[in-house]
Amino acid sequence: MTGQRGDTAPPTDDKRWRLVNATMRRYGYQPRALIETLNTVQESFGYLDETALRYVAACLRVPLSKTYGVATFYHFFSLKPQGRHSCVVCLGTACYIKGGANVLEALSEAFAVPPGHTTPDGALSLLTARCIGSCGLAPAGVIDNVVTPRLTAAAVIDQLRKAIHDGA
């Protein structure tokens, strides 16, 4: 199948769609570019909403259900917007052995949000990772995109409370 594949107009005039289009163009609007494109959407918009999924599916000519299947298979993709702040606690083996799970539990309790979720006010997403490859610094985490070594519950709670307070 050949033909004009870039003729679907972006859903809005948001400039971030240009990034998404650039990725699709780089791969010649081939269906195989689905994951790369969803990665760009995730990075540009922070999550994949229905509009984005429909747009990407139409541009790459991937069935809707398949697009959704791929988007929900990979943990890196999120279908819901993330909180203004994020805290990822690593649960890799080294971090687990050194108490990562306890830190997670304390955070979950302190901010009243289950792991993998965002607080109702959208302030904080509490997430977990399989291994962030920083095992030498266990227990490690990623707080607002900064890898943070040797987490302790008290320090992280403190840091996040401050961040939320200053940002809100």
Partner: peptide, 28 residues
């Protein structure tokens, strides 16, 4: 038509129509 596919993974897997919408509203 490729209306059906599988969403999620592991024990959470589920067959879906289109974007996991009600079957009756499927456009495909």
């Amino acid at each position: 038509a490729h209306t059906w596919d599988v969403m999620g993974r592991g024990i959470q897997s589920q067959v879906i129509t289109d974007l996991a919408q009600p079957w009756g509203s499927s456009s495909t």
